[in-house]
């Protein structure tokens, strides 16, 4: 225990330098994934056959294959077609594309769970389809999706550690680097684990707060 704490005092500052990298990777990717997910969801629920098939294939493909392979494909594979990204950008793209597929599925589930009568009522009071979606459907669907969405966001936060494999200098990568310098991989990864645990718990409580703040009786059940 003492050894653990001393190790922490010596190396924690360097490890913590990875936190902003991890967090920005995560925030950028899930935000982009949010909008791409909405588009994919729209294509699947309201799109014509063409859009339906494209988005379904996309979702199936990205949910059916590992994030690690997706990241390698983008970072190591695409350069063979002359498309080159730096490691951070490649990681953002991979996490965005992967997360969008999951977010789209959760959005779809919650959109389908909003009673049909809601849209009918909106149209019958004169709203256009777009207005009905924007003002009636989305506010309800987004509230309902918060618990699943929070889960997904936390999964992606943990998945940012995969970016280490292509050399993004985030928490895991710095830990591995310190490990090879101190030859005490066990200690340094324990500390990395503690940092991730604090991050995921904090995010979980913040999202829990969001869920309670947006609570409307009858729309969500908390």
């Amino acid at each position: 225990m003492r050894e653990f704490i001393e190790f922490g005092i010596e190396w924690l500052p360097e490890l913590l330098m990875g936190v902003p990298v991890t967090l920005s990777l995560w925030v950028i990717a899930i935000t982009l994934g949010f909008f791409l997910g909405l588009v994919l969801c729209w294509a699947r629920v309201y799109g014509n056959l063409f859009f339906y098939w494209i988005s379904t294939a996309y979702v199936e493909l990205f949910r059916g294959t590992p994030m690690l392979v997706q990241m390698f494909f983008i970072y190591l594979g695409l350069p063979h077609l002359g498309i080159v990204f730096d490691a951070f950008t490649a990681a953002v793209i991979a996490i965005t594309l992967n997360s969008a597929a999951y977010q789209a599925e959760y959005f779809r589930g919650s959109v389908l769970s909003v009673p049909k009568g809601q849209l009918v009522a909106a149209r019958s009071c004169g709203m256009t389809q777009w207005q009905a979606i924007r003002y009636i459907m989305l506010p309800q669907a987004l509230r309902r999706v918060i618990p699943q969405w929070s889960n997904e966001a936390i999964i992606e936060l943990k998945f940012t550690s995969i970016a280490y494999t292509i050399g993004v200098v985030e928490i895991t990568s710095i830990a591995s680097d310190i490990g090879s310098r101190t030859l005490d991989f066990f200690m340094v990864f324990l500390w990395a684990g503690v940092i991730y645990l604090v991050l995921t718990s904090t995010v979980a409580s913040l999202l829990g707060l969001l869920e309670r703040r947006t609570y409307v009786p009858g729309v969500t059940n908390v």
């Binding site: 943990k158 998945f159 940012t160 550690s161 995969i162 280490y164 895991t172 830990a175 591995s176 490990g179 991989f185 066990f186 990864f189 324990l190 990395a192 684990g193 991730y196 645990l197 995921t200 718990s201 979980a204």
Partner: peptide
């Protein structure tokens, strides 16, 4: 709460 990569290393 901890990424699997970290757990694997630990």
């Amino acid at each position: 709460g901890v990424p699997i990569i970290i757990m694997l290393f630990i």
